[in-house]
Write a protein that binds this DNA or RNA. Structure first.
Lengths: 136, 136
DNA sequence: AGGTTAATCGTAATGATTACGAATAAGGTA
DNA sequence: TACCTTATTCGTAATCATTACGATTAACCT
């Protein structure tokens, strides 16, 4: 997934191509790390000093809804990374220090055989936290 | 786990027996639900109108550290429930509406066989979200 | 009953996120 | 190119859960 492809997908849905939105994608593309919203804001401000919180959060959520980004909560703050499409639905091992992710090649929902009758299952979350080789 | 047992455990560690702390336990004991900190505060205020946030959050974290409570983030807010000791380490199916939990009888970490060499694994999170029979 | 120390209260600060009206810019069309 | 429509941004303030801390109080030991 590169920036131009992402922008093309958005255009097909009627979303406009803005410099700020492109810059968010530029920051996240080609990275296998989760990055805090706060850090994304700082990085965007280097290019657009007057960018507003509204713009960044709105775009982060828009891109997440369009499945161009993945979002997760790490120690109470929202973090984002570019969607890795290669393997479809998947889970991550996430480095507590740098946010680097390693894809986990299985989903526990394929194995759960508890009696969940009577419940409606909507979503699930499975994440492993630790330290990556570089941060060790 | 009843309130007296919990208080006894705390006493052995040098923690004092306070009415506010006991009330927090009273609210959570015998419930298989996650309850938001906000709701716990409201309930405590019915008995102690002048209770401070400091007292409640400090106690919730203390009780969590002492493994008398379990804590999780649900839609960005901290929720707590009494620890269910019966099965040791376990995971939950959590109702999005009422916070009711159903214990899941397996842990995905027992099955992960991805090559995680080079990584140090600290913790993990596995939760299923949905609707319980009562809320359906 | 006195002394030590944990615990609470009262209140304010923090900090991430959300909200919104006015202004601007993107993209299509004539 | 000029115009028009609408999404998008900016500027700024509000919200809201959580955290912080000095002064006071209450638990508990002897």
């Amino acid at each position: 997934m590169n920036v131009n492809t992402a922008i093309q997908k958005l255009k097909e849905k009627g979303y406009k191509h803005t410099k700020q939105r492109e810059q968010i994608l530029n920051i996240l593309v080609n990275k296998d790390h989760y990055i805090a919203a706060k850090e994304i804001i700082e990085r965007i401000k280097q290019h657009f000093p007057n960018v507003s919180y509204d713009t960044i959060y709105r775009n982060l959520y828009l891109l997440t809804n369009e499945e161009l980004l993945e979002m997760t909560d790490l120690h109470g703050e929202k973090h984002f990374r570019i969607m890795c499409h290669s393997k479809g639905h998947h889970h991550h091992l996430i480095c507590n220090t740098c946010g680097k992710t390693k894809t986990i090649d299985f989903c526990p929902m394929d194995i759960v055989d508890d009696k969940l009758e009577g419940y409606q299952i909507d979503t699930h979350k499975f994440e492993i936290y630790g330290l990556c080789p570089q941060c060790l």
